[in-house]
Amino acid sequence: MPSIRMKAISSGDTTEVQALVQHPMDSGFVKDPSGALIPPHHIETLVFSHNDKPVFTAYWGPAVSKDPYVKFAFKGAAKGDTLQATWIDNMGKTDTGTAKIA
C-alpha cells in the first residue's frame, strides 16, 4: 500500500497540490495502555519534486498531526507532468509516491 496520496491540479501556470501521507506521527509524549511512553516516530522531511527539481520541502516535527496533510502550489508545470514526493522519518524509513498533474 503506497503511503502517499496526492492530487495535483493545474490551472493556468499554477499547479495546486494536496497530499495525504499515512504515518503515525507519534509525538513521544503519549503513553500506551501499559503506561510506557511510545517513542517519537514522525516524518522529518517530505520533498516534492517536478522534473527532478524540488518545488516544495516540508520539515516536520512531532507536532504535525497523524496521517499528515499538506497543501501548496507551484508554477511551471503542465498537465500530464509527473510530480514526485519522498518522505524520510526519524527512524530512517522512507517512501516515494508520484502523481500525474491533472
Partner: peptide, 21 residues
C-alpha cells in the same frame, strides 16, 4: 516549532497543514 517549509523559486507563497496543539 511545528513545521518549517522551504520554498523554491517556483513555489507560491502559501501552505496548508494540520497540527497538534
Amino acid at each position: 516549532l511545528a513545521a518549517s517549509y522551504k520554498l523554491a523559486d517556483a513555489s507560491m507563497a502559501m501552505v496548508g497543514c494540520r497540527l497538534k496543539m
